[in-house]
Computed example of a mutant assay.
Amino acid sequence: MIDQLPDSARRVALLLKERGHPHDVVMLPETGKTSAEAAAGLGCAVAQIAKSILFRRREDDAPVLVIASGANRVDEAKVAARVGALTRADAKFVREKTGYAIGGVCPIGHAVTPVTLIDEDLLALESLWAAAGHPHAVFNLSPQELIELTGAPVVDVTLRENVT
């Protein structure tokens, strides 16, 4: 099965296997580039998609990875308050720093180890799906497995609109 995966997804599958992760990489018939597309393909809630969003830290050009619930918008000010001023990461930066294309950025196995933060809202869910190195590839994991795989802190990164 692993041999039939695209190169970047195979790399993730082997890394997960090395780390003792119990679930296989799954190929979606349609793209999973957006949380809504991935959720539709998996038959799960959008909130269960652990989307990987990469930023560029202004002071040193370090990659900053935020793993957020697919239902949430990331509050860049909250992230910047924790890690320093941010700028947007373009497709070239994402590919260079992660080794993955946008839409397939996995929480692990990056070319350059990013500063990583996990959205606290993910901990309320039993099951998550994350990109596995390719826009059609995903893998299942629990919030605890996400924490163990990344070693990242769990923080509030969600933009919360004030409703009055």
Rank of each mutant, 00 (worst) to 15 (best):
A68P: 09
E120I: 02
V46L: 10
R58C: 11
V138F: 08
D3G: 01
V94R: 03
K78D: 08
P135T: 03
A89F: 07
G133L: 04
S35G: 07
E76G: 05
E145F: 06
S52T: 11
P6F: 03
L14R: 14
H23S: 15
D60G: 06
I147W: 04
E76R: 13
A124I: 05
E30G: 13
S52V: 02
A62H: 09
A50R: 00
G43V: 04
K78S: 08
I102M: 11
H23Q: 15
G32H: 02
W129T: 01
T116Q: 10
D24S: 13
R73Y: 09
A9T: 02
G104W: 00
P22G: 11
E161P: 07
G99I: 05
F93L: 11
N140H: 15
V115W: 11
R73V: 07
L5S: 07
C44A: 12
F93K: 07
K33R: 15
F55P: 07
A89N: 12
A91E: 13
H136L: 09
D24G: 07
I102N: 06
R57D: 10
A77M: 12
A81Y: 08
A68R: 02
Q144V: 14
A39W: 06
D7Y: 11
V163D: 13
S52L: 06
R82A: 07
L28E: 15
G104D: 03
S35M: 06
R95G: 00
E148W: 07
G41Q: 06
A9G: 03
S127R: 14
L28P: 15
S127A: 12
E126I: 03
R82W: 03
R95P: 00
K92M: 11
A152M: 06
K51P: 01
G109E: 01
T34A: 01
R88K: 14
A36I: 15
L159P: 09
S127E: 15
D90W: 04
D60A: 08
V83P: 08
R95E: 11
I49R: 01
A13Q: 10
D90T: 06
D121Q: 14
A132G: 13
P153K: 06
A9S: 04
F93S: 11
D121H: 12
I49P: 01
V155R: 11
I49H: 04
R88E: 14
H23T: 12
A45C: 12
I102Q: 13
I53T: 11
A130H: 06
P153S: 08
R56A: 10
E76Q: 12
P6T: 07
G151M: 10
L86C: 05
A91K: 10
A152D: 04
T31N: 05
R58T: 14
H134V: 00
A152P: 04
G84M: 13
P135W: 08
P63D: 03
K97W: 06
Q4R: 13
A137M: 11
R160G: 05
R160H: 14
L16S: 09
L128N: 02
G133S: 08
A71C: 05
D7L: 13
A62W: 07
E120K: 13
S69I: 01
G20E: 12
A101V: 07
V12D: 05
S35N: 06
V115D: 11
